[in-house]
Amino acid sequence: MENKSERTAEGMTSKKPQELVEPTKPEETEFYTPVPPTVDPTGQNGVPSDALVLFDGSDLSNWEHVNDGRAAEWDLNEDGSMTVKNKSGDIQTKQKFGSVQLHIEWRSPKPINGKGQHRANSGVFLQGLYEIQVLDNNDNDTYVNGQVGSIYKQSIPLAKASVPTGAWNSYDVIYHAPEFSESGDKTKSATITVLHNGVLIQDHYEIKGTTAYIGWPKNPPHGKGPIKLQDHGDNSRVSYRNIWVRELNE
């Protein structure tokens, strides 16, 4: 008799369809390996126990400036958030990532300053290349593939789910990195799912390539990359807090 501990999902799915025989016993479709790891969903301070905390409000030690690698100079606030320091430059994580689950919270400032793309404009970049737009669109229309929650210049969000200006928004992201051949050709596109304040706004969208301000998406071959936060350079003063990731093994 087969030992149940040796029966695995892989064992069944590895057979070709024509080789499969219809199961006649319930235990023939019961798997016991691999056993998923146990994760405490609330962990410490509400963060899953297997997550890497990138920013908890205490310091900016996990971040650096994009252009020259110097220590991040954005403003650290008493409420446990950080705010874009105008024209200081984009910042990115020192650590590089591939596929991830990302949680990040952001807030547009009050009083309101600017309009269109110049009101609380920032962005969250996966692998330093693929941008989820951050913008205050409350009573502030702009091009829809550049509005809040868009995959910039590519995918219009399914809904606008912003909270009132000055309140905290959240993005929860499932991102699967692209794949490239040894010759540098893209063999699999990146995909992204985004929930904005718990509302699905990007549903497994297939990213076409880099999210450029001008021009078509490009697909330079790359490996893991940083998570980048944008300084739009127009005194947008966007704030961020509670940033953590779970690396997804694929």
Score class of each variant (00 low, 15 high):
V35K: 13
K188I: 00
L102D: 01
G146H: 10
G80L: 07
E64P: 09
E6W: 08
I214L: 05
I207M: 00
I156Q: 13
T210A: 07
N169T: 01
T38P: 00
G69M: 04
Q18E: 10
S14W: 02
N242M: 05
E78H: 05
V66I: 13
D141H: 09
F31D: 11
M1L: 01
E179S: 14
D75K: 14
K218R: 12
H222P: 14
F97Q: 05
K218Y: 01
K224Q: 12
V238C: 08
V21S: 04
S170G: 01
D231C: 01
S181T: 14
I201N: 11
Y171C: 09
Y205G: 02
M12S: 07
L52K: 15
E182V: 02
K16A: 13
E247A: 09
G223A: 05
S162P: 00
Q18S: 05
D203E: 11
H65D: 03
A71Y: 05
S155N: 03
P221S: 04
G123M: 00
E78F: 02
G98A: 08
D234I: 04
T211R: 11
Q92K: 13
A161P: 12
I132R: 01
P111E: 15
Y152D: 06
S14R: 14
E6G: 12
G146R: 15
G116L: 13
T191D: 00
H222V: 12
A71I: 06
K110Q: 15
E28V: 08
E182W: 01
I112D: 12
D141G: 04
E250H: 15
D185C: 01
F180Y: 15
I192M: 08
Q101I: 11
L102I: 09
V66A: 10
N67Q: 13
G123K: 02
P48H: 10
R237N: 15
V21G: 01
T93K: 05
K25M: 13
N169A: 02
H196Q: 15
I112S: 12
E28K: 10
G198N: 07
G46V: 05
A167R: 10
G149C: 03
D231F: 01
E250M: 10
N67L: 14
I214S: 07
V124Y: 03
E250G: 12
R246F: 06
L158I: 08
G166D: 03
Y213A: 11
I192D: 01
H232N: 06
I243N: 11
S108T: 13
V21H: 06
N45P: 04
S122E: 00
D231L: 03
G198M: 09
K94D: 09
E250Y: 14
D185L: 12
K115D: 14
K188S: 00
P37N: 11
S122M: 01
T187V: 12
G114R: 08
G69E: 07
L20R: 15
L135F: 13
S239C: 02
H103M: 09
